[in-house]
Design a protein around this nucleic acid. Sequence first.
DNA 1: ACAATTTATCGTCGATTTGCGATGAAGTCT
DNA 2: AGACTTCATCGCAAATCGACGATAAATTGT
Lengths: 114, 114
Amino acid sequence: MKSSPVAERACGPALEGPDLRAVEGPEADAELAELAKALGHPARVRILRLLVRKDACICGEIVGELPLAQSTVSQHLKVLKESGLVRGEVDGPRTCYCVEPRAVRRLKALVGSL
Amino acid sequence: MKSSPVAERACGPALEGPDLRAVEGPEADAELAELAKALGHPARVRILRLLVRKDACICGEIVGELPLAQSTVSQHLKVLKESGLVRGEVDGPRTCYCVEPRAVRRLKALVGSL
DNA sequence: ACAATTTATCGTCGATTTGCGATGAAGTCT
DNA sequence: AGACTTCATCGCAAATCGACGATAAATTGT
């Protein structure tokens, strides 16, 4: 059996520790642009919000919340995953998506530096 | 004569007053997506940073800072202007671009709500 | 009036994005 | 094993983006 040993479970252990990267300079600009680009679509903003609120989710549930086809939602999730804002772990037949708090903090820091 | 009456001058009077719009919900999502999309390119992040630092600028100076053609920079400025993050006022033969602090604050509020 | 400067716009090209249905891969259940 | 579920991936079409050179528009200076 593989029933979750913990009741309220997110995807996995969140990466912790302070962020040492600079919030300015060419690299930071590229980083901010990449994160912003990932957020540059209403569906992806919505998805990220859903994940933040629920703290754990599955693609299926997300599809139900959006007026989009399953394949389209999967694509958006892929974009979010590639940006680092979201993490996905395979859990049996489903995939458990969750926010990567570190990346969200990073985004906030970068935007805050404007 | 139209010499600037003030030494350090930005574009014009910044829109002031508190922002009453919600930071969540479908409208906020669309707004965040739009602002994020405008920032979703390294050149535009760079331009915005330049404007924030200088507090007033002209397209020509910006072109000098970027490895892009003048027409391309003009396009990026147009995108930023349409997003509301930047304002441009015609000033003689040039155009004076400057940040719209209200929009930047709004962006920070929206990102902060994630 | 004319030349020079500064910025915006147009047209074009290739690349990327967005959306979808169809299909494939992986796992669960009976 | 076979049916079913869940999600990813593959093509494909339409739209948008990013970059450029060329050109137009507006203003200044001579």
